[in-house]
Design a protein around this nucleic acid. Sequence first.
DNA 1: TCTCATTTCAAACGATCGTTTTAAACGTAG
DNA 2: CTACGTTTAAAACGATCGTTTGAAATGAGA
Lengths: 211, 211
Amino acid sequence: MSQADTVTRILDSAEQLFAEKGFAETSLRMITTRAKVNLAAVNYHFGSKKDLIQAIFARFLTPFTQKLDKELDLVIAQKTDPNFQDVLGVLAKTMLTGVESNDAYNKLSVFMRLLGLAYTQAQGHLRRFLNENYAHTYSRFIGYLKQAHPGLSSEEIFWRIHFAIGAAVFTMSSIEVLRNMAYSDIGKKSSVEEVMQQLIPFLAAALEQES
Amino acid sequence: MSQADTVTRILDSAEQLFAEKGFAETSLRMITTRAKVNLAAVNYHFGSKKDLIQAIFARFLTPFTQKLDKELDLVIAQKTDPNFQDVLGVLAKTMLTGVESNDAYNKLSVFMRLLGLAYTQAQGHLRRFLNENYAHTYSRFIGYLKQAHPGLSSEEIFWRIHFAIGAAVFTMSSIEVLRNMAYSDIGKKSSVEEVMQQLIPFLAAALEQES
DNA sequence: TCTCATTTCAAACGATCGTTTTAAACGTAG
DNA sequence: CTACGTTTAAAACGATCGTTTGAAATGAGA
């Protein structure tokens, strides 16, 4: 078995388990058992559990922010002053790139669940890591939103964006719980894709309202 | 020291620590140390850590759902067919009852943080507990919303409500992180009350839009 | 084929966890 | 004051955690 196999298998198993149970509730023994590698492999290849957590976020976010930056470049090249929908559209497009299969939808929702954990679980090292590595693209994105909607204060923009992130992240964080609740409440178990298609207009209406 | 003192001190300390760190990340030793009681007091008075978690939710939710039920009775007595805003108004009124001081705002946000943990942390026993004890009032509330907006499908109502819960719970779950982010982003550290006053119209616009 | 760095493995480490035990301290009714 | 149920106290339990160790297995280059 090659190194890449072991590293990838650890990342895959850990990502899945962290998303299901949270960081503290997932032990390295669970991860290595599922990945069918030795317990010590995590510390050998990643250093520590904290480093493993950061590696999982990096695997998703590094290509994601690169793609988002390129898409922002494209939009700016076409229109020096993109409007609100243009900017939000870039985000949506970047998020949904390569998302055609059900499997890809699940991968996206798994990562949104992890992102929710990053906010709500007390992982100070993770917030520091995300801030050091990805804050630039985040700030750039928020900056364009501000320019696109000068009628809204910076404060309003900031909070609306995070209300929207909250709705999305929370929904995807508890998507299995919610789908079960929906089933017992209304007899229908919507797919992840159907839920997202309800979520997008919901957020659009909330983000764009006049203050 | 009387029993009530010990029980209350444990509940207060545990509530605060759970909200800060999450359930798994908070040990009984942290709780009993902060509460200045003996370690064994939790198991003596509550039975187990799980029972303690349930007791914290019961302390908030039992009077809350009782009050919500009464307020719903009042509205139904006045109007047999309350509209969307009437029903949402009942929830807002019940949530904000007794919330005038900054301290009360903080207590509400602490509980919303706990509610977020209940959704997102894998506490199967807690979801079972909440479902057994409070599902009735929840269903009643959702039922009135459906009646008030027959143009929306049950599915749309369900998901919109949970998108809104998500935005609120996520925001309050990570309110300290977000306030710090807001400060470094835009130089202003909004109070919890100010955030809520931005949140309410945001959610109202999203909930009431036509489909 | 031999060498040596890389990777895997089983085993153990110290620390911390929730819980239990046993006895002491407390408070109150008789 | 005495007796007794309740509550608090200190100590230890077994289990599990992340991490480390040292040796075995592996594999590519000389």
